[in-house]
């Protein structure tokens, strides 16, 4: 499904994590020196935070793409009614929208990987797997975005997912600091968020740690995808088929 897209928006999605990488990665990196990984290795702060920024970019792209774009089409444009008059069904519509999010995620991931490689921040050949992982993460968050957008009533409602879910997750998912820096109750909460698992998965791949932790992240995100995909198609069906 080819739609004209606002390239400015997409480009800003590439620029944002890069800015964070330079600003925070190098800035805080100068202060804290290095970070100790799960396997005991010390890595530069930029190499630590970079993968998390990549995972967050995949999330942001997916959520923006689905929530804003789909909200309008679901509620104001009658585009989906037109598509449903063809052999296409709700599931295809949902997957079609998701495809956009995936393309965005792929772009972000490639850009980040290239920049990080140029800065010497890639510590393992496994990093190449960060690309499919980013697509996978993007799919999971698009499903959540699709499900979420079908519950929103007005444009003002957008503040709820953005301000209360996406933004806090960005701050509290072990993005910037190892989660062991936080008190235990917050650690437990972080373990429950999908972004934590996305960050952990990508960070593992880019620093060369691949273990049960990453398998668990993968399983969590797969389950997350399935549940929200089910919810999204059910909600869209309720909205579109009367």
């Amino acid at each position: 499904m080819v739609y004209r897209h606002q390239w400015i928006v997409i480009a800003s999605g590439v620029v944002e994590p890069v800015l964070y990488l330079f600003g925070i990665g190098l800035g805080i990196g100068g202060l804290v020196g290095g970070v100790q990984l799960a396997d005991g290795r010390f890595v530069s702060y930029a190499a630590y935070v970079g993968p998390a920024l990549l995972a967050s970019a995949a999330m942001n792209g997916a959520v923006f793409e689905t929530i804003f774009n789909v909200f309008f089409k679901l509620n104001y444009a009658k585009t989906y009614e037109g598509i449903l008059a063809t052999p296409m069904g709700i599931t295809e519509i949902a997957l079609g929208e998701m495809l956009w999010a995936l393309m965005r995620a792929a772009l972000y991931a490639v850009a980040m990987l290239v920049i990080m490689a140029a800065m010497g921040l890639i510590l393992s050949p496994l990093a190449i797997l960060a690309l499919p992982a980013a697509l996978f993460i993007s799919a999971a968050f698009s499903a959540a975005g699709l499900a979420g957008t079908s519950y929103l009533r007005t444009v003002q409602d957008f503040d709820i997912p953005m301000g209360l879910i996406v933004q806090p997750m960005f701050l509290f998912s072990g993005t910037f600091f190892p989660i062991t820096a936080y008190p235990l109750p917050i650690q437990v909460f972080m373990h429950l968020t999908p972004l934590y698992h996305a960050v952990n998965l990508i960070r593992g791949l880019m620093t060369g740690i691949l273990g049960w932790g990453q398998a668990w992240d993968f399983a969590y995100l797969a389950a997350f995808f399935v549940v929200f995909m089910w919810l999204a198609t059910r909600q869209m069906e309720r909205k579109l088929i009367k």
Binding site: Y3, R4, A77, K78, T79, E81, G82, A85
Partner: peptide, 9 residues
């Protein structure tokens, strides 16, 4: 359909 649902984009 009674109401056009063309893709405006």
């Amino acid at each position: 359909p009674q109401i056009d649902n063309l893709d405006q984009e």
